[in-house]
């Protein structure tokens, strides 16, 4: 069924590992619109995200990062190629089935999208209610809010929280059901330098502790160091796929300078 051959993986990978991967994409194409207005935005994407990896996706504006993220998150349905998320093929699924897939994914958005009418705890509880665990929802919400450092803010409404705190509530909401895959689209864009940093470190810590896979889109160079791997999307194609070290060596101007100096 699966072919071990995959161009975009940096190292050769065993079949077993691919089968167990959080995300496995093969020959994925995606276009918006139909007929004359049809506009292709993703071209032949091949990508495998193993368990527990923190992957940052960068690329110019309009290159298709958000589109790819929404496809992986089952928020859009892909028509072509193969897209396995948490061991389930989602190309060709019905809307209802897509909703089921989403329950296993944590989403963190650029905007926090919290209900202003609900307290921090209630916003998080809304996620717990999806699992039907009504009896423990309050405890679960308090526990995760404590983990993100908002123990004394559980009963505050978003109005009374800072931008960074709101984003942390959103993270708590995304993580409370222990999703195995977390998708984040510029989660730090609305935050200042320090809160942005805090939010990302927090995500890294929680992911490492619980072995989660994170795919995060960001334009923020200051947070690249949390990544195990950085992929670069240009004009709908995966241009490069490297570990953090190679990325820093090839992209850091000082390193480049030194190399030239040596030469």
């Amino acid at each position: 069924m699966e072919t071990p051959h995959n161009l975009s993986l940096p190292q050769s990978t065993a079949i077993a590992e691919i089968k167990d991967a959080a995300v496995h994409i093969k020959n994925l194409n995606y276009s918006f619109g139909r007929g004359d207005l049809c506009k292709q935005v993703l071209y032949d994407i091949n990508l495998t995200l193993p368990r527990g990896q923190i992957v940052i996706m960068t690329g110019p504006s309009g290159s298709g990062k958000t589109t790819l993220l929404t496809l992986i998150g089952a928020l859009r349905s892909a028509q072509e190629g193969s897209l396995r998320v948490l061991n389930q093929e989602i190309v060709g699924l019905s809307n209802r089935q897509l909703v089921e897939v989403r329950r296993n994914i944590g989403f963190i958005f650029q905007a926090h999208n919290l209900f202003e009418s609900l307290t921090a705890a209630q916003n998080v509880e809304m996620a717990v209610e999806l699992t039907g665990e009504f009896a423990t929802k309050r405890d679960q919400a308090t526990a995760i809010l404590t983990q993100v450092g908002l123990k004394d803010r559980v009963d505050y409404k978003p109005d009374a929280l800072s931008g960074g705190q709101k984003q942390r509530v959103a993270i708590a909401r995304a993580l409370v059901n222990q999703p195995r895959l977390i998708l984040a689209d510029e989660p730090t864009a609305a935050l200042d330098k320090k809160s942005g940093r805090d939010v990302v470190t927090l995500m890294q810590k929680l992911a490492k502790e619980q072995g989660k896979t994170i795919l995060m889109v960001t334009h923020d160079n200051r947070i690249l160091d949390v990544a195990d791997r950085i992929i670069n999307l240009v004009d709908g194609r995966l241009e490069s796929d490297e570990t953090l070290d190679t990325f820093v060596t090839t992209h850091d101007p000082k390193v480049l300078d030194r190399r030239m100096f040596i030469l």
């Binding site: 089921e100 809304m126 909401r173």
Partner: peptide, 9 residues
């Protein structure tokens, strides 16, 4: 929309 992303139908 966020509720739908979270898995609410």
């Amino acid at each position: 929309a966020t509720l739908k992303a979270m898995g609410y139908g």
